[in-house]
Write a protein that binds this DNA or RNA. Sequence first.
DNA 1: CCGCAACTGATATAGTATAACAAAACAGTT
DNA 2: AACTGTTTTGTTATACTATATCAGTTGCGG
Lengths: 141, 141
Amino acid sequence: MSSGRRPLSQTQERVLALLVAAGKPLSAYDLLHLLRHEGVNAPPTVYRALDRLVRDGLAHRIESLNAFVACSRPHHQDMASFAICDACGVVAEFGDGELQSRLEALSERTGFQAERTTVELRGRCAACAAHGHGHGHVHAH
Amino acid sequence: MSSGRRPLSQTQERVLALLVAAGKPLSAYDLLHLLRHEGVNAPPTVYRALDRLVRDGLAHRIESLNAFVACSRPHHQDMASFAICDACGVVAEFGDGELQSRLEALSERTGFQAERTTVELRGRCAACAAHGHGHGHVHAH
DNA sequence: CCGCAACTGATATAGTATAACAAAACAGTT
DNA sequence: AACTGTTTTGTTATACTATATCAGTTGCGG
Ligand SMILES: [Zn+2]
Ligand SMILES: [Zn+2]
Ligand SMILES: [Zn+2]
Ligand SMILES: [Zn+2]
């Protein structure tokens, strides 16, 4: 039998390293541009590596940004939520037991069987809210 | 002074009507195809109508689907959450005071100032979970 | 009438994601 | 080593989602 899961491939390691280094969400095409120097030059390669990382719980997709971020507590089983600063781009990942309980209670009541839950707060982080970075925007370019 | 907000334009009305009739999320391009018969033939027209409807609280964007759905309780001020069935495509919109309080408490603690909150549950609705529609997928085509 | 704001038309372009198929790499088995 | 099933990669092409830009229009208040 196969004990544990496969190790990451070279590409998967590279993508994860880039996400960790960035410390904020990168789009698949951001990653692709960063990897052009290293022989990766097609979208599917990047998307496949991302699929693996997300399946494995090493990265998350941020739906409201169409982007990906390294998991801050790899392989956790509970659901993840995100607070995303629109001024500086930083993302805080947090787990919230009460939030999760609340959503599970809802499933109980309604019979809806959730397989995946997205919770994303968009706004300003404490630092940016203080600083008068009140109306800036992060640009991907 | 201008009492109340402007009425919806013809295009905006049509887009809203289509969303209501569909009873589930439609992509901007789904709407565009439906409107081709009526002289609308460019994406920006549809996106602009959708912007207006979303700004006005008559429709919501579902981030995890890149699609739009009519609001089930127009103009509500509290945050909306969504349970989306991946088998039959139906979306249930719900407001949950406790959920909202929980998220507001979080903002309080961390200083994060949320301007927009996305809560989306993906899974199977009660009917589909019962029926053994256990592994189907909804296709947009 | 004038000016302003919102909306539209039209064209082009940017950004995000997957389909499909062939080839290579890898691990476990015989 | 040879065989087998699975995973990953390469490559090309294509589909889907969204915005930029600029000109023209419409509706309304001053
Ligand atoms: Zn995580
Ligand atoms: Zn910030
Ligand atoms: Zn609503
Ligand atoms: Zn269903």
